[in-house]
């Protein structure tokens, strides 16, 4: 296989290509320093403060159970899919691991 098709190299090549294409076919960007009304941050008919203050920063605490749910399901999925194609799949191991995963996930979701 050609090294240029190796995913990390392909990723970098396409990133550079897309950025050069963008630079070639679009007018230069207008940065926030320009003082026309269109560049003012406004929402729902009124102006808003241009930058976030501490009290306006979003609270991520409600986010944590979802993050745990996401992580556990990800890992459980990868573990189960791995066990399914190695000789260990002939044993009862995947079933036990699966049941433990499900119990943890349901505990995160509903308790």
């Amino acid at each position: 296989m050609n090294i240029l098709l190796f995913p990390p190299i392909a990723f970098i090549l396409i990133f550079i290509f897309a950025y050069i294409l963008f630079k070639l076919i679009t007018p230069p960007p207008a940065y926030g320093a320009i003082k026309s009304a269109i560049h003012k941050a406004s929402q729902a008919g009124g102006e808003v403060t241009p930058t976030l203050k501490d009290e306006e920063t979003c609270d991520y605490r409600q986010f944590f159970p979802l993050a745990v749910f996401f992580t556990i399901l990800h890992i459980a999925g990868l573990m189960l899919a791995t066990w399914a194609f190695i000789p260990l799949a002939e044993t009862i191991g995947p079933i036990i691991a699966y049941l433990i995963s499900v119990i943890i996930i349901l505990a995160v979701l509903f308790v």
Binding site: F22, P28, P29, G32, A41
Partner: peptide, 19 residues
């Protein structure tokens, strides 16, 4: 016109479509 907000992190703001 491509608008870049005044107080944003320019690189982080511009790179997502290309990434």
């Amino acid at each position: 016109e491509t608008f870049i907000p005044k107080h944003c992190d320019t690189i982080l703001f511009k790179s997502p479509p290309f990434l």
